[in-house]
Structure formats: C-alpha cells, structure tokens
Design a protein around this nucleic acid. Structure first.
Lengths: 160, 160
DNA sequence: TTACAGTAGCAGCCTAGGCAGAAATATCAT
DNA sequence: ATGATATTTCTGCCTAGGCTGCTACTGTAA
C-alpha cells in the first residue's frame, strides 16, 4: 500500500495531475486550432468541447447503439454538469448541429439528435481528432498506449 | 511511424484524450471537495485551480528557487492565459492569500508574493493534494507511475 | 383522487480559460 | 532624442463547468 507521492519530495511540475492537465490543455488547443483552420468546418465555428458532445451523438449512432439520447444520458457519459449541458446544447442548436425533441411518452425528457448539417460535418471532425491524438502519441508504441489506457481506467475505477 | 488510432476502429470513450479529461475532472473535483470540507481551509474558500497557483508561489519558495515571481512567469510555467491570470490573482488577493507588488526597476512587472495567511494555509493544502493523487494512483506501483510520467512528458514534448 | 418523492431540464450566479485590443513601460535602432 | 517595436498587465467579450434553486413531469403510496 505504498504511497506514490510524499509531501517532502513532491515536485508539482512532475506530478501526474499537473502533467495531465497540461497535456489536456494542449490537446484541446490543438484540436481547436485545426477545427477553426479547416476550410469545411471553420464556418460552423465548432469548438473541441462541442465536438466531444457531437461524438457521443453521432459517433455512437454509427455503432448501432441506442441513437436517441437525452441530455442527462450525455451528462452521465461525460461526467458533465446538467446546467452546463443545457447551455452546451443551446450553442450547438444555435449552430444548427443538433435538434431538441420533446419525448411524448415521458414529457420530462428531451431527446437530442444531430441534424443533417451535424452529421455531414462529423467525419471530418473525427478525422481531425484522431490525427491530433496520433500526433501527441508519436513515438509511442501500441503497447505503451494500451498501458496508458489501462492506468487511466484504473485511476477512474479507484474513485468511481 | 504507426498511427495509434484509426478512424474506423476509434472508440472515443477509450481514447486517451477523453480518459485523461475525465481523470482530470475527477481529480480536481475530489480536491475541491476536500478543500471545502477541511475545517481549517473551508473558511478561505480556496479552489483546486487556485491551489495550483499557490503551489507555484509558495512551493518553490521552500525549494530555494527565485521567490519573486511575476504574473507572466506563472503564465509560462502553467501554460496559462495572461488575462485569466490577472483575474485569478484578483480572486487570490481578495481572499488575502496573495499580494501584488509593483517592481520599481521595471514598472510593467508586478511581483507576486504569498501573504502570511497564504503561507500558513499552504502545508495543509499540499498534504491534501498529495493524498488525493495517491488515492487515484492506488494499486499502481512506482514503476508504472514513472512510466505514466514519462509518457505524459513525451506527449508534451511531441508538440513543443 | 390527492400527496409526495424523485427526475429532467432550465436559469442565475460563481469560478475559470482563450482571445483581442488598449495602456503603460521598456528596449532598441536611428 | 525620436520613433518603432516588444513586453507586461489589464479589460471586455466569448465559451465553459459547478452549484443551487426552480418548474414541469412521472410514478407511487396513502
């Protein structure tokens, strides 16, 4: 049950918390730059944060899982705050990428659906996201990335 | 030069980008909870984001490096936006944890200094931060964490 | 039927970061 | 010394998430 870090020897700049924070910031910034530089997508003004939501709406549709998702479903999947999700969907709806549809059976629910525009933009966005991540992972082999993935899952499991 | 991810087989929920994002959210939330639950610290209302800045101001002081840091120094160290830093320091100053001091040699610069209150609260905050990280890393050995650290550093290095 | 607990979405207020532009100051070239 | 350029900070406007309380709706139990 050895502790990894000790207060005495703790170096914040090399802690996993701060390193992961910086990697995440750099990845989102890189994707944001590419999204706004792409001639097809720049007009939509989609941000990386918005893309993450679109992935869940469109991406899983192609994989055959239940396509009708509510806002609270997305919150659970992404550990998102419900209030934040409302406003995120406002922005996506204003850009014409997503539609809200009140469920008639349970009128508390609002199903979310990607519009044609959203679906059309999706493949290019996905391609960019994959490319950005591959660039960050350059020089690492698949075994290392698999171990990284396992460690991250373990960290989530430790507190979930 | 093998790419790690391919568009066809890409599973967003198991990508390092999203996993790291979730781990980071959970770590910050855990630290926030502990900071606001601690009897000594709850009165200060320090958040995890504010703590990260305090670490750079107080933590490095104890390590003998140059103690007088300007706002832009902090921005470089933390890859922070300058405008965001201004407001962050506003909040820390309002809470009495940090002092601004105009540099007389270069009057554009503002040196930052932790107040007595800030310095007094620091050890407890550091202790909590270390504990939270150790809890997330539970079950991993030091070699794994070292490899994780190396991979994260490599990812940062890959993009400058 | 009514009462009540639980759930979903939403709105207001807070912290928070990115970006662009302004103002003050410093530095450098002429 | 003057003017151009760079640096530092600050401000305004945007996206963005967390929290609390509110409303609408559902399901259940009295």
């Amino acid at each position: 049950m050895a502790n990894i870090y000790e207060v005495k020897s703790y170096d914040p700049s090399q802690s996993v918390a701060q390193l992961m924070g910086r990697v995440r910031v750099e990845m989102l910034a890189a994707l944001d730059r590419e999204l706004s530089a792409d001639p097809q997508l720049s007009a939509l003004g989609v941000t990386a944060a918005q893309f993450v939501v679109m992935v869940r709406l469109v991406g899983n549709e192609n994989r055959g899982s239940e396509s009708r998702k509510s806002a609270s479903d997305l919150c659970k999947e992404l550990s998102y705050d419900a209030g934040a999700m409302t406003r995120m969907i406002d922005r996506l709806e204003k850009k014409g990428l997503v539609r809200r549809m009140r469920c008639m059976k349970d009128r508390r629910l609002i199903y979310l659906e990607a519009t044609e525009l959203g679906r059309a933009a999706y493949p290019r966005m996905l391609e960019m996201s994959v490319a950005v991540q591959n660039r960050f992972l350059h020089g690492l082999d698949k075994a290392q990335v698999e171990q990284l993935t396992n460690i991250l899952n373990r960290m989530l499991q430790n507190v979930g």
